[in-house]
């Protein structure tokens, strides 16, 4: 069960911009096991999406991407040719994007777009591909699947389109699936449906999954592991239980205070907010990236590089100068 499917070590993305060098992703490491869901949480612009695009090797040409290790199912993705990479994409590893309204080609039918990846990667006939498409459309909860195949994207609602995108990602039976904020563009009522659908399918097909989302409620339910990202770095990572029950980094603590938790947050209690804005990632930023917004900031936070702490409870690490005990004390103080 615990064999690793995706492993990323020290992933760095740099993008040259007119004002200098942008460092949107700074030495990110994580791994995803078969059948495991890793949730990446963080606010807009923290580098979540670029991380996933980097794994898919779909970054814009201007971006430089390096890593000490980037492997899928034991195969090194950095040294593979673009040709081999395109054999992997959509086949062993696929991706679901956040804009269902614009992520489907308006000129082709749903059926055409669903089957083309399968026809490209596997030796199957047209009718086999069609059967697989109908099977998956039904799996993602689309009724009258066969008749949907001849429809065009503009005839479907946003929720339906995202279901089609999910079916499309599953066509070749991938071992790894990356979902980049798959529900941000959808109605609130549909968001939960889609996320639960994804989680169910992930368990059913035993895939590794990276789920990038804002929705901490969903994260708490589906995540095996959680990585909290802030300004290009992972500031805390651990199992879902560890991070939710024992949030250590001040940013994680702040994030969790921002959302009401049923049964935990008292009626009428004030929800927290994190003051300030995300720092610019152009050029080098010394010290802790969260320092300017942190309630517990100290002089030592402003200089040098702050590394991830050693694991203090079985894989739970965080990026702060304070000890876990001090952090836990901060949380109580903040709540008081």
């Amino acid at each position: 069960m615990s064999d690793t499917i995706l492993e990323v070590q020290d992933l760095v993305v740099d993008i040259p911009v007119s004002a200098g060098m942008l460092h949107p992703v700074q030495s990110i490491s994580f791994k995803v096991d078969k059948g495991e869901t890793l949730c990446i949480v963080g606010e807009s612009g923290c580098g979540k999406s670029l991380t996933s695009l980097a794994v898919m090797n779909l970054l814009p040409k201007s971006a430089n991407c390096t890593a000490t290790k980037l492997s899928l199912d034991g195969e090194d993705l950095q040294s593979t040719s673009e040709r081999r990479m395109s054999d992997i994409r959509g086949n062993k590893m696929s991706m679901i994007f956040q804009e269902p309204m614009t992520s489907l080609n308006p000129a082709y039918t749903i059926g055409n777009q669903l089957t083309e990846a399968l026809l490209r990667h596997k030796k199957v006939s047209q009718s086999e591909a069609r059967d697989r498409a109908i099977y998956l459309l039904e799996k993602v909860g689309i009724t009258a699947a066969a008749s949907r195949l001849t429809q065009y994207p503009h005839q479907l609602s946003g929720g339906l389109r995202q279901r089609v995108m999910i079916a499309m990602a599953l066509m070749c039976g991938p071992e790894m699936i990356i979902a980049d904020e798959p529900t941000t563009a959808l109605d609130v009522t549909i968001q939960a449906q889609i996320l639960h659908l994804l989680a169910d399918l992930q368990k059913e097909f035993n895939m590794g999954m990276i789920l990038i989302t804002h929705d901490l409620g969903v994260v708490s339910r589906v995540a095996d592991r959680v990585a909290v990202m802030y300004a290009g770095q992972i500031v805390e990572t651990g199992t879902g239980k560890q991070v939710f029950e024992n949030p250590t980094h001040p940013y994680t603590q702040g994030l969790l205070e921002c959302i009401p938790i049923p049964g935990k947050t008292e009626r009428g209690a004030h929800l927290g907010s994190i003051p300030g804005i995300v720092p610019s990632l152009v050029g080098d930023l010394p010290g802790c990236h969260f320092a300017d917004r942190c309630r517990h900031v100290m002089d030592t936070c402003r200089t040098g590089t702050i590394d991830l702490s050693p694991s203090f409870e079985d894989g739970h690490v965080y990026r702060c100068v304070q000890t876990p005990e001090q952090c836990a004390a901060n949380l109580k103080k903040g709540a008081a």
């Binding site: 898919m56 779909l58 990479m85 395109s86 054999d87 992997i88 994409r89 959509g90 086949n91 696929s94 991706m95 994007f97 804009e99 614009t102 992520s103 489907l104 080609n105 308006p106 083309e116 990846a117 490209r120 990667h121 995108m165 499309m168």
Partner: peptide, 15 residues
């Protein structure tokens, strides 16, 4: 976005 989708499917560049 749909070109990104097409690339993510692993389609050949000419396709």
């Amino acid at each position: 976005d749909y070109i990104r989708t097409a690339k993510a499917k692993g389609l050949r560049p000419l396709t």
